[in-house]
Amino acid sequence: MRNGLRVLRAERRWSQADLAGQLGVSRQTVNALETEKYDPSLPLAYKIARLFGRPIEEIFFDDEGAPGSATPVRAAAAGP
């Protein structure tokens, strides 16, 4: 799975530790999510979606075509 977590976090100027604190996970886990080495469980994905106030499919998406009508947060859109 791909995700736009890094972009969303950067928009809010949060550090990985800030985001980890709000999600109740370790900073290493946030890093693994952002580098797309690890896909979150559904409960954690919901928590992330709720925190950023966006539907899950806007934050997490695969490469298999467009994810419905949602506009995914893509890393390329906001730069590194």
Binding site: G24, S26, Q28, T29, A32, Y38, P40, S41, L44
Partner: peptide, 8 residues
């Protein structure tokens, strides 16, 4: 008490 990735 570990998070899901740490548990994995």
């Amino acid at each position: 008490s570990a998070d899901e990735l740490q548990q994995r």
